[in-house]
Design a protein around this nucleic acid. Structure first.
Length: 510
RNA sequence: GGCCCGUUCGUCUAGGGGUUAGGACAGGAGAUUUUCAUUCUUCAAACAGGGGUUCGAUUCCCCUACGGGCUACCA
């Protein structure tokens, strides 16, 4: 048991965007696998053909790529247990389902969806199980010859598991500890659908077995169906190979209650999906963390600490550190409300800690989106170094540093005009002259000269400092004024002063 | 309704039979920065309730309350 190579899987269904809870499930799987030198398998659970969405699989792959969580085996990477799409494994499942029927652990059911709906509506607490299965149309209630006739006639039918009476199914969840269920209270889940496709319940057990999965981590919403899976492992004779289970706590809405959904994101103004998801059918675009300006490192970091901590006060972790420190036993049992403010804090921390070099390409993209072409690499590096401490999301780089690449289009005139004087105009002309005489611009040196000049002209430094900032930047923000000057250079600085002077010194509009 | 899971500051959490119950985000106050942000200092803020067990429970057990999940030929 212990000498088996660790193998985990993430098994999404390709029905739409990838929820942050899904990414966290991937992350915990991935961390566990990598910590133990194991394999991380991506398996596509596309057994529901009615819910299949074009492009969703590629999207999921792209999300994993962006996050840097690369599967060792997947539909595109291949692997020894291919195929990794359940739709391509379809013929395989029937065999196991039939075997269960033969051995008395499952049965054919001929009821139509309409009949069952009616029952569910009319009978309180109706479920297809111990209490009602004998009143329904199936190979347990019908005489053998009738079942055969139905089968021969090709009557649509499903195969259901026959939940035993009066047994207790229990297991040891790696996060929750001992969990148990009374089998008689669980309904007879469908294993094989009328179209011949397995349901999740059959597919997950068969594929986890065939793919030699050793640890199965999934969301807490799966806990109620765990007894079905446990029983299947037993009935199929694979119990010795059953993976160890861990049911991860849910990610909840920040306000109110319940699972976090993409609707909450739209309502509260934050992303829920990893990356932008465009639904071709509805034309709806659901925003993603990536496009909003999150760094993948930050995204992973915030997800990791949502439900897990290493027992110290450390909050910022690199992927490598997470791999080193992660343990599934330290994952919390209780659900966590998602806090977007804290999420942003993680991103700000990651931007601050990132090397200028690693930020470059993303920053260039941010500027390109705003129509600003960055071509001076060295200049860009200096700009990033100067302002990265003040950016929370990547687009902030444009807001905070756009003026390094284009002259201000508007000025905060309110901050400057009411207190404008001719003396100030004279001061800036003198400063331009001073600038022209400088061979090299050095921030500290220039600042000293600026202050000296102000005093010489009988002006308070504060009265000329803010207007100077607004001349260069357009508003009351940005790094130290003389750091800006040093980067902008002499020519550009003079040009901006002259341009701004025209507006600042003009008489107020009537 | 039934079944299952959960419950420490507003939020994420640490801790665990004897603690000033610790940290982070957000919030308040202040310092620095002649902008803004960063940074720093600082304040406020929690063991759901009731029973046990115990010399002593926030910690262990039970009950209650509350919250959540599931209850499809969806995953």
């Amino acid at each position: 048991m212990t000498d088996k190579k660790v193998r985990v899987r993430f098994a999404p269904s390709p029905t739409g965007g990838l929820h942050l809870g899904g990414v966290r499930t991937v992350l915990f799987n991935y961390l566990y696998a990598k910590k133990h030198g194991g394999d991380f398998v991506l398996r596509i659970e596309d057994t529901d053909q009615t819910r299949y969405v074009e492009g969703a699989e590629e999207y999921i792959l792209d999300c994993l790529k962006w996050c840097g969580l690369h599967p060792d085996e997947s539909p595109v990477a291949g692997g020894p247990y291919a195929p990794y799409r359940q739709s391509e494994r379809k013929p395989l499942y029937r065999e196991y389902a039939e075997r269960l029927v033969m051995e008395g652990h499952a049965y054919y059911a001929f009821d139509t969806a309409e009949e069952l709906d009616k029952n569910r509506k009319e009978i309180p607490n109706f479920q297809y199980g111990l209490a009602y299965r004998h009143t329904l149309r199936n190979s347990l209630s019908l005489p053998q010859h009738e079942v055969d006739a139905l089968l021969d006639a090709g009557t649509p039918h499903v195969i259901r598991i026959k939940m035993p009476e009066g047994e207790t199914v229990s297991f040891n969840d790696m996060i929750r500890g001992y969990v148990s269920f009374e089998t008689g209270l669980v309904d007879d889940k469908v294993l094989l659908k009328a179209d011949g496709m397995p349901t999740y319940h059959l597919a997950v057990v068969v594929d986890d077995y065939l793919m030699k999965i050793t640890h199965a981590f999934r969301g807490e919403e799966w806990l109620p169906s765990a007894p079905v899976h446990l029983l299947l492992w037993e009935y199929l004779g694979w119990k010795a190979d059953m993976p160890q289970w861990a049911h991860l706590p849910l990610i909840l809405k920040p306000d109110g209650h319940g699972k976090l959904s993409k609707r909450d994101g739209a309502r509260l103004g934050f992303p829920v999906y990893a990356m932008n998801w465009f639904d071709a059918k509805t034309g709806e675009l659901t925003p993603g963390f990536r496009e909003l300006g999150f760094l993948p490192e930050a995204f992973l970091n915030l997800l990791a600490t949502l439900g897990w901590n290493d027992g110290t006060e450390q909050e910022i972790f690199t992927l490598d550190e997470l791999i080193e420190k992660f343990s599934i036993e330290r994952v919390n049992k209780s659900g966590a409300k998602f806090d977007f403010e804290k999420a942003k804090w993680f991103n700000a921390e990651w931007i601050k800690r990132s090397e200028v070099e690693s930020l470059k390409s993303d920053v260039i993209k941010v500027f390109a989106d705003k129509g600003v072409n960055v071509n001076d690499d060295e200049y860009l590096a200096k700009v990033i170094g100067l302002i990265k401490d003040r950016c929370v999301l990547m687009p902030d780089f444009y807001q905070q540093a756009g003026f390094f690449f284009e002259q201000p289009r508007e000025y905060d005139l309110n901050a400057v005009k009411p207190k404008w004087t001719d003396a100030k105009t004279a001061f800036y002309h003198a400063f331009i002259a001073l600038l022209n005489n400088e061979a090299v611009i050095e921030a500290h040196d220039l600042e000293a000269k600026f202050k000296a000049l102000a005093e010489e002209k009988g002006l308070k430094v504060g009265d000329v400092m803010l207007p100077f900032r607004i001349m260069l930047v357009g508003g009351k923000f940005g790094p130290h004024v003389f750091d800006i000057v040093a980067l902008l250079g002499k020519e550009e600085t003079i040009s901006r002063i002259e341009k701004a002077l025209v507006e600042f010194a003009a008489p107020p509009a009537p």
